[in-house]
Design a protein around this nucleic acid. Structure first.
Lengths: 205, 205, 205, 205
DNA sequence: CATGAATGAGCATTCATTCAT
DNA sequence: TATGAATGAATGCTCATTCAT
């Protein structure tokens, strides 16, 4: 192994060391209590070192969000690889998204953080990077729909548009978790979620 | 006008003065830069005075969010009162929600803030107040669907569930605005939005 | 009842109303969370009214401290009135002081507040008032010792000095409660307290 | 001198710089007016810097109190090392405690602050640290009594308990300084103090 | 008598970031 | 590369007191 490779490896190790610390903080106390100083303490590194490997806090968050998206992707990918009927795949993907929002709440908060922050300035590279992670997931859904349509299981002519509707709807519904005790009344969100999935799938059959 | 009335009026005026300041800040620099100290400066009042009229920062945000929800409600209510066919009403409501998210971005950011912040410490009263404002909007949609179903224009048996799906989907889709240049590729969100509305309405016809 | 008397009575009622509120706050959340604003809310009176009846916060605290001292006095007075032997009386007084410090912690904190605050400015009247309340208690002890000496049960020639030593020692010991888990090691303070009382009494026998 | 040593030295210097500032404030205007902001201004450092060296305000107070206890310890230790008779040592220790309470009033106020504040949230480590400083002083007294008892000068079987009584009594008596013009009447506290010391010592002879 | 609106200095603490070493 | 000392603006919030009505 040459000097260059070793350097690159060490570099990656350090980055991971930092992300490990950030992740640990994120999971133990939530997004609001992740600060650079705390990360540096947790990682047993100087704050300066953190800034050597990450330009700013946003970049660390981005990396963590990518982790979350990758995890989500792998879950959804697995479903897409099964032999289940197309319809069933969509249903399972939808359900797994709901589960992800509950069981990986911290990652989900992070995704929402990036999705809802009105911050104007966002480095284009960073933004692109995140969006592409999201896109991969969208493509899975899109492919299932497209494939289903080819095989005449579905009758959707615009799989891309539909996949955005599909995911957008699921995403929007997760936010209604906060209304479970109020607006939703005696129903729980999961019920409504399943109803919605049913309807969305039905609409392309 | 008696003393009591005048006092009550002055009280409301002051409250408005504070909300004006808060709104101005919110609209000029975004939610993150609204602080009590800044509000007090903007309103030309002591911070103590702010706290005399509002228990805490959250309450000011709540009031502002209610403004936004009231505005949204009035828009949607107007549509519901027209003589347009049910289907058309839903379409217009959907469209107006999209427009609201773009034209009243600051109110919309505020709504998203409350919807996605992982903070829990929200006072039940405040939360209930907001949720009920949201509920009023939901009920309009629900009524249109219910009425449409009664008149056999729609065939939806569960108008409540469907209205949640409807609004949730629209809401989720607005978040994709951020992906317009990346994931959405050459399409713009409005197109997809209209496609989605079409599909959702179609699913109950 | 003439106008004057009624006025005086009303005046006292209002004062009590205020003290009731202050006491309630003191007992429910401790000395640090008693503020004029809170008192006024609790008493359902305007803050201005509070200031009409009490010159400042200190005066309210003084009144409450007097309550505490009066309560303490009544406890000690009762003991002094029994037929118990002088020695036994002293022992019981000592014990009741310890109990008072534990069971009426809030009053005791208040006493300590006045006793340890390094504040320079203290209105002479106020100070005198408090001191006299303390003096009454001291006099009881002093009388018991004096009487005991007259009857040759004790051999103390200077009952005043001894009573100050007696009370001062007891008071100082109560502060060691904070050391129970550290300096005091495996002993508890009560044990040491009793030991001390024994010694002090023994020293005048 | 290596880099490490120099760093450590500088660190200590900064800490002292902060403590100097805190001490100056404490001594010039009393404990109530020591705030972190004031310290930072006095020390000509940013507030953040204060927090870099001390975890919180309490820790600064702790350090200052330790200074006081160390000073007191050194005074008492010197006495314990003399060739004076045991009895005389106790007398001198007692007297020096009184003098300390008058001449180093600010340190004494600090000690009282920690001893009487009803605040609970004290960190165990900090509390232990302080208590151990106090314990060292107590042990000196205890040893003198124990040694005296071994040599049959005293007849105390429980030196620990007695040393607590001894110190507790002296400590309690210092609080009566406030009563010099009122309860104590024509006597001054020093007189009573000496009387008390005499009695306490006499009780173990 | 009674009110309650208004004050604004003050509080302890956190933060992302910089930069000389 | 790596460090960690230093910053100081900023945060939400409390407080005793005043005073015009």
């Amino acid at each position: 192994m040459g000097v260059k490779e070793r350097k690159a490896l060490e570099r990656q190790n350090r980055k991971n060391q930092i992300l490990d610390a950030a992740r640990k903080l994120l999971f133990s106390s939530g997004i609001d209590s992740v600060s650079i100083n705390k990360i540096s303490k947790q990682a047993e590194l100087g704050v300066g070192t953190i800034y050597f490997y990450f330009k700013n806090k946003e970049q660390i968050f981005t990396a963590l969000q990518e982790e979350g998206l990758t995890l989500l992707y792998s879950i959804i990918f697995k479903i897409s690889e099964t032999k289940a009927p197309h319809e069933e795949k969509l249903r399972q993907i939808a359900l797994s998204y709901y589960n992800f929002s509950q069981e990986h709440k911290n990652y989900f908060d992070l995704i929402n953080y990036f999705l809802t922050t009105p911050k104007v300035f966002f480095e284009p590279d960073l933004k692109n990077q995140i969006d592409m992670s999201g896109n991969k997931i969208l493509l899975i859904i899109q492919n299932i729909v497209a494939e289903g349509s080819e095989q005449k299981v579905f009758k959707e002519k615009d799989p891309q548009k539909f996949s955005i509707l599909f995911w957008g709807a699921l995403h929007g519904l997760t936010h209604f978790k906060k209304f479970e005790k109020t607006i939703l009344g005696n129903q729980n969100l999961e019920e409504i979620y399943e109803f919605s999935v049913q309807r969305l799938i039905y609409s392309i059959k």
